[in-house]
């Protein structure tokens, strides 16, 4: 049973993509860069080219990290659904299969100024 109830009970999902006026939520997180206290939330049209997300809103948000200037997007390792992922920067979020509320993670081995030496 998907909920403890007196009789059959069907809930209504509150944050379906239809509620976002043609846009979708995407979460982005830079592994081992915890100056940003939580994964970042962006609300974007699914037709936005992936590369544009990186150069535009994401780059602006990452400015505060001392590693931001050294970030080379061509060398970044990506994860989606916590599994390796190879996005095509020239294609859109939708074409890359990035859905509403998906979490993308990126890794930059060797780049970790604010992290304690292990």
């Amino acid at each position: 049973m998907a909920v403890t109830s007196l009789k059959e009970y069907i809930g209504v999902a509150r944050d379906r993509v239809d509620n976002y006026g043609g846009k979708q939520i995407v979460y982005l997180s830079w592994d081992h860069h915890l100056l940003f206290a939580a994964p970042l939330m962006l609300c974007l049209p699914p037709a936005t080219p992936f590369g544009e997300v990186l150069r535009g809103p994401l780059a602006a948000l990452l400015q505060a990290d001392p590693d931001a200037a050294a970030l080379d997007w061509s060398k970044v390792e990506w994860l989606k659904d916590n599994r390796p992922f190879a996005p095509d920067f020239s294609r859109s979020l939708a074409d890359n299969g990035i859905g509403h509320k998906d979490q993308l993670r990126f890794r930059t081995p060797g780049l970790n100024s604010l992290q304690a030496a292990a």
Binding site: Y27, L28, S29, D31, H32, L34, F36, A37, A38, P39, L40, M41, L42, L61, A64, N82, Q103, R105, Q115, A116, A118
Partner: peptide
């Protein structure tokens, strides 16, 4: 940080917590 936070669907807090065994990595 104008990048608003991902919230947890259950406790509704921003996901500020790290992996139980690794304080350098956000818990996903």
């Amino acid at each position: 940080n104008y990048g608003l936070a991902r919230l947890c669907q259950c406790c509704q807090l921003p996901c500020v917590f790290t992996e139980p065994g690794d304080p350098t990595l956000t818990c996903h």
